[in-house]
Simulated scan of single mutants.
Amino acid sequence: MDELKNKTVIITGASSGIGLACAEVFAQQGANLVLAARRYVDLCTLAQSLETNYRIRALAVQCDVAKEADCQLLIQQAVTTFGGVDVLVNNAGISMRALFGELDLAVLHRLMDVNFWGTVYCTKYAIGELLRSGGSVVAVSSIAGFRGLPGRTGYSASKFAIHGFMESLRVENLKTGLHVMLACPGFTASNIRQTALDAAGAAHGETSMDEAQMMTAQEVAERIVLGVVRRRRTLVMTRQGKLAVWMNKLFPAWVDKQVYKLFAKEKNPLVK
């Protein structure tokens, strides 16, 4: 995929999970990288490794995407270092696991600040450069952006908001050359469930699902990179996910029951 060689790719949430895997796959294709996350030491180690292994350039930028000023500085540093931006992957995100009636509303605020506003801030400050390059803006979303999930009210709400934002952005730019893509993995083996917030806003520290049965972050990253090259509109990455999206349109009440049954099988289920 020579289309990505020497392109400048910004990846938020790049220190672990899907973001880290995306960094590896984009680097394999010869792209120069701007890696953003809060864990700066991990980012520096990753940047050095990618530069050594793939002979690309990689810049580590400490960034909390919930802070507008951090996002603005991220884009400025990318432009200063590489002269522009070709791809923005809005990957940074957090999850939650708590029934709505029991949670502190600060949890929902945090989910929206990171997942939704983080995407908005980075896209806002990068869009001028992306329009100049005819580049791509990607939001890593979820099936939860199509279908609300029990115990994940804030997560689902943030992903629905991202979908509305990205769809509007796509229509606004139908004739500008900007590529807008939603990437919706199925359940992915990563640390997102361990770091998911509980009712009080603390990290759970353990997964509630069988990680062995899930997509790997590597699989997700490979599909995202190919989707950027092919300028895909929406990636729903699993058969189960595609079925859920279509059945939810046709038989929403039936899907309510199936989703309830699925989440009742979690470890220490919230619905029973």
Results as ranks from 00 to 15, higher is better:
Ala183Lys: 11
Leu20Val: 02
Ala60Arg: 08
Gly30Met: 11
Glu3Pro: 03
Lys272Met: 03
Asn90Leu: 09
Ile56Tyr: 01
Gly83Thr: 12
Ile94Ser: 06
Pro150Asn: 13
Tyr54Pro: 01
Cys122Glu: 06
Arg57Gln: 14
Val114Asn: 10
Val245His: 04
Ala157Glu: 02
Leu243Ser: 12
Glu3Ile: 15
Leu178His: 12
Glu219His: 01
Arg233Lys: 13
Leu73Phe: 06
Gln77Gly: 02
Gly19Cys: 12
Ser15Gln: 03
Thr80Gln: 11
Glu129Tyr: 15
Ser158Cys: 07
Ala126Trp: 00
Phe187Asp: 06
Arg193Ser: 11
Val41Glu: 15
Lys67Ser: 07
Val245Ser: 05
Asn115Phe: 03
Gln240Asp: 14
His204Glu: 01
Cys22Ala: 13
Gln213Trp: 00
Phe165Tyr: 13
Thr45Phe: 12
Val138Ala: 01
Gly227Ala: 07
Ala106Asn: 14
Val236Tyr: 05
Ala157Leu: 07
Val34Ile: 15
Glu211Ile: 09
Glu167Cys: 04
Gly128Thr: 12
Lys7Val: 06
Leu46Thr: 14
Arg97Asp: 02
Phe116Ser: 06
Met214Lys: 00
Asn173Tyr: 09
Thr12Pro: 03
Ile143Pro: 02
Asn6Tyr: 08
Gly83Lys: 12
Ile162Gly: 09
Arg39Thr: 06
Gly164Asn: 10
Ala106Phe: 03
Leu59Ala: 11
Ser142Glu: 00
Gly151Ser: 10
Ala199Tyr: 09
Glu24Thr: 05
Leu243Asp: 10
Val138Met: 01
Met215His: 00
Ala69Val: 10
Ala23Glu: 12
Arg55Gln: 15
Arg231Lys: 15
Gly151Tyr: 02
Val107Lys: 06
